[in-house]
Write a protein that binds this DNA or RNA. Structure first.
Length: 194
DNA sequence: GCACGGATTTCC
DNA sequence: GAAATCCGTGCG
């Protein structure tokens, strides 16, 4: 018999954002859209952004209207516009009052999805996730993250986050996680010596 | 108010 | 390699 999919409880996200990013690999993102129907995809790439001291995290500016959601209770969506064109989807992590988010950078389509889903801007477009979802809970409602098959440690890779070179030393922290050899990871790992 | 630049993607 | 294209943040 198949396992009944169950939502990931908000307590899951209250943990250290680095661990949350790691443990979100393999989870199932479900979007029940009134027009486009039910879309399901497996999370295969994430990045953690943790705390005001993290110079790559939006919360480096402290509490502002934009970053308020990062300080809110874990398990809610943090969606924002980047480069005037793309909505990026994050999950708020860490206990309330401590700002952190997990950026979803790549998902593997399972059902009902048209378009490319490797890359944070592509997956939101393909799954029709936009700023309307900013702040919504992710364990109930139209946009939901469900438990999936756990990813064994041997299949997990980590490395520096993408596109945050402005963040100095923080840019080098290995807070990006992905499933090894999965084709829906946005950036291929550097080719090991041949 | 206004200038600056960004957790990206696509096209030349 | 650079454009596309908004808006949050910082500063005046």
């Amino acid at each position: 018999m198949s396992v009944t999919p169950s939502p990931i409880a908000p307590e899951f996200y209250a943990d250290d954002p680095i661990l949350v990013a790691r443990n979100l690999l393999g989870a199932i993102l479900v979007h029940s859209h009134p027009v486009h129907g039910e879309m399901r995809a497996k999370i295969v790439e994430t990045e953690a952004y943790r705390g005001e001291e993290d110079q790559a995290c939006h919360a480096r500016a402290g509490r502002t209207p934009r970053t308020e959601a990062l300080y809110g209770p874990p398990g809610h969506a943090y969606v924002y516009l980047i480069y005037g064109m793309y909505d990026l989807f994050n999950v708020v992590a860490w206990p309330e009052g401590q700002p952190a988010g997990i950026l979803i950078r790549g998902v593997e389509p399972l059902e009902g999805i048209d378009g490319k889903t490797h890359g944070p801007g592509r997956l939101t477009r393909a799954m029709h996730i936009n700023r309307d979802y900013h702040g919504v809970p992710l364990w109930k409602g139209n946009l939901c993250i469900m438990h999936g098959e756990p990813i064994p440690e041997k299949q997990v890779r980590s490395g520096p986050r993408i596109g945050v070179d402005y963040a100095g030393n923080w840019a080098q922290k290995p807070w990006r996680f992905w499933i090894n050899n999965n084709p829906y990871v946005s950036v291929k790992p550097p080719k090991s010596k041949s």
